[in-house]
Design a protein around this nucleic acid. Structure first.
Lengths: 183, 183
DNA sequence: GCAAGTCAATACGCTACCGTATGGTAGTCC
DNA sequence: GGACTACCATACGGTAGCGTATTGACTTGC
């Protein structure tokens, strides 16, 4: 048993706490208690609470940049398949961290900025997929935004991702709607 | 000049503070300072902070129940017009309060419950509109959810509601997409 | 014009947390 | 085995905010 902690453990635990209990629960004394150490440990690794928050944010940036998109691209397939893949990946994933980051962003400008960049990147990716399907720029943009906003909305209200009764049916309807060319 | 405060002023100011600075800023001493009184006033009107929070929540429930839907219904018109009206009303409105309520709900179960009810009501309303347009139940459900989630997503990321350059164009695209019958 | 009722100021104790200072201990290096 | 490093405990002082108790002051009813 390695009772001694490293900086990484603190950051990981910070991320976990953020994801499960929100940014307000990321406080040094309570966390120290849960980790069975005192804050003496914390202040050895970090200048102050804010330093931890910054580390947490940049850890998330790492995850989010090297993210679903990469994953989807690795799976390959044509645009239709990739869109489908992206959907299911997001819908089935655990989005609590993303959600809490979004909430955190409401009260912290650095987080806000980081989040916007990630959002931008994702929307652009979606746009490209739709263009690949033959949609015009503006058609692609409209669709990409609609989808992305819906995805965000989906998990900020934590809708049970898959309706237990009519599961994939709705998914297919929406999917077809998005893919259908206008007129 | 009426320097004396009533319960209502406190609640209103609470709502305002919530909308502009989030639930974390709804604290009695800071609010008292801004209102140019001491907390002696607050504790005369309320048992404790939580009592204020409850009042705030139920005030919001009032707004939210007697809400956009009522508004849209008053405007009248057929389903298409009403959907269009609902869209623009929401997109042009000030959704900060709704957003902060949603954030608040993340850390308070009562709020969560209230919010779910409102969400439910709104989605159902949308569903009915789509049914009125001749969609089957499941088609209507899928569309209603997609739209609602997108709307939520739209303002939880605070996307500039109307893109300054291509304003209504995207709106029309999405609108047509939603209204078009499958196949 | 005086009693009741309404609102507010002040002063206090309490908790939760931040951050610092200082000293202690267990491994590592030579 | 002494020095050095990495980590942790303890004790302390400080702040923000909650809630309570007491007193004061203005307002209205009679």
């Amino acid at each position: 048993m390695n009772k001694r902690l490293g900086k990484k453990q603190w950051i990981d635990f910070g991320l976990k706490t953020l994801a499960t209990q929100g940014i307000n629960a990321v406080r040094v004394e309570p966390m120290a208690a849960e980790l069975q150490v005192t804050k003496g440990s914390f202040y050895w690794h970090f200048k102050n609470r804010n330093a931890l928050l910054e580390e947490i944010l940049s850890a998330w940036k790492g995850y989010a940049t090297n993210d679903i998109i990469t994953n989807v691209e690795e799976q390959g397939g044509d645009a239709t398949q990739r869109i489908r893949c992206l959907f299911t990946t997001v819908l089935e994933g655990d989005n609590r961290l993303d959600k809490e980051i979004r909430i955190w962003a409401d009260s912290d400008n650095n987080v806000q900025t980081a989040l916007r960049q990630i959002d931008q990147r994702r929307v652009t990716y979606l746009e490209d997929l739709f263009k690949e399907l033959g949609f015009t720029a503006i058609q692609a943009t409209a669709r990409a935004r609609l989808v992305y906003h819906a995805l965000i909305g989906q998990f900020t209200m934590d809708v049970p991702a898959i309706d237990p009764f009519k599961p994939s049916r709705q998914f297919e309807i929406i999917f077809n709607m998005l893919i259908q060319k206008p007129n």
